[in-house]
Amino acid sequence: MSESGSLAPRRATAEMVARRANVSRVAVSRAFNPHTSLKPEKRALILKVAQELNYTPDRAARALVSGRSHLVGIIVPDVCSHWESQEIDALTTALQNEGFATLLFKTRTDYSMDERLLAYMRGFNPDSVIAFVENVKPTTLARVLDRAVPIYIHYARPGEEAPPPADGPLFDRLNVLQRTGVEQAVALLQGYGVKRIAYVSGVAKSRANVAREAMLREVLADRGMAPPIVAPGDFSYDKAYAATIDLFRIGKGVDAIFAANDVGAFGAIDALRHELVLRVPEDVKVVGFDDIAQSHWKSYNLTTVKFDLNERVRALVRLILRRLADPTAPSLQETLQTSLVVRGTVG
């Protein structure tokens, strides 16, 4: 084998692209940044030449110059549950459209973070970190992050809508206000004469679950109704299925079930129909939470409190871009409302 044949092919550089396209080195750099202005025909030419030369920007080198890694860390408790998988997919797509890559970190089952993962996170020097698990505290992330300001999803309990405290580590927040959707659900149930409501809960450690139950209790009290009968669940189909059977075979049964999430509502519906031989909605009405893609399937046709997924993702991306534009700004916030989607499990 010749000496030249044994050498690895030379990696294309930005200068090579610039010479071939007859543009400046700066123009090549701008062509790969969707947020910079460049004539469309020039950008198209540069990207075409880059593809021909098999050129891609050196992210590490660019990060040294710009101080930005174009990486966003995402901390989740679960990657295969229906809501999380749909949200991660939508968020990853939106971030890629903005020129970011994502790093996915999964917590332990108790929602805590392995210290080794925190060290890995610091090594990647992400531009932002979105924590879907409130158990990973801002003080923890402040210890391991450099310049990134974490974003938290905040499910406010009644009376907790205030801004985050100013005396702790800086973090940004997406506030999810559940009152409107829950109130619409309870009003609909009450309008159909429902008296006894069960809450099939999620994981006890989940702030979303705790806030959801507290909001349901407050709305029921405000409307002069009895507090919910709590059937312990964990956001899973199987636990909700078993909890629903216990409600009727051990307890006295209920007129309606409000599940902490849609998958739990599916478990409740199947237990009612197939194990307890009760009709939905004629005998027992069921409401879910989230409005995942499967909620409109004809087998369930679920009435549910909806998070607008696209709106939620846009709000998270806005928080990232706002923070990068003003790194020293006080805590940034976005707010997301909920609403009721009425389908066939109430009526």
Rank of each mutant, 00 (worst) to 15 (best):
S339N: 09
R196E: 15
Y55E: 02
M215K: 11
I245R: 13
S37N: 07
D167M: 10
I153A: 00
L324W: 06
R173G: 00
V65K: 14
S66T: 15
R122C: 08
G191P: 12
A329K: 00
S69M: 07
E41A: 14
C80Q: 15
G344W: 01
V65W: 03
A162H: 15
E334V: 06
E218Q: 15
P228C: 04
D114P: 03
Q294P: 11
L316T: 06
V219R: 08
R108A: 14
A90T: 01
V305Q: 02
A187Q: 15
D172R: 04
K42G: 02
L189R: 07
K42S: 15
K39N: 14
A12Y: 03
P169V: 07
S236W: 01
Y155C: 11
S4W: 06
A240Q: 08
A90L: 03
R249F: 05
E183K: 14
F171I: 00
F289E: 11
V286L: 10
A243N: 07
S6N: 12
L189E: 12
A14K: 11
R68W: 05
G168P: 03
E15L: 14
A243Y: 00
G251W: 09
D78Y: 06
G123L: 02
T36E: 15
T180F: 07
S339Q: 09
D146V: 10
R314I: 05
L71C: 07
M1P: 11
S6F: 04
R223T: 08
L316G: 06
F289I: 08
V210P: 03
A166V: 11
S66Q: 13
S4V: 11
L117M: 13
E218N: 12
A204C: 10
L95W: 06
A242L: 13
V186F: 12
L189I: 12
R19D: 11
E98Q: 12
G264I: 04
R249I: 09
F235W: 10
G67H: 01
F132W: 03
L340R: 05
E213I: 12
F307Y: 13
A265I: 04
F266K: 07
L45W: 02
M16D: 14
V176Y: 04
P57H: 00
A240P: 05
E275V: 10
Q178V: 09
D290L: 03
N175R: 10
L71N: 10
T180L: 12
A162N: 15
D89K: 13
K252D: 14
Y300W: 11
A119R: 14
Q51Y: 01
L174K: 07
V186E: 06
T139Y: 09
S295N: 08
Q190W: 09
Q337P: 07
G347H: 08
R318P: 01
V26C: 10
F124M: 07
S201P: 08
M121G: 04
I292H: 00
E134L: 09
P169T: 06
K42Y: 10
R212P: 00
P126L: 02
G344K: 06
E282T: 13
Q178W: 02
N175V: 13
L53C: 03
A50T: 07
F307S: 07
R11D: 02
A242V: 12
R122I: 04
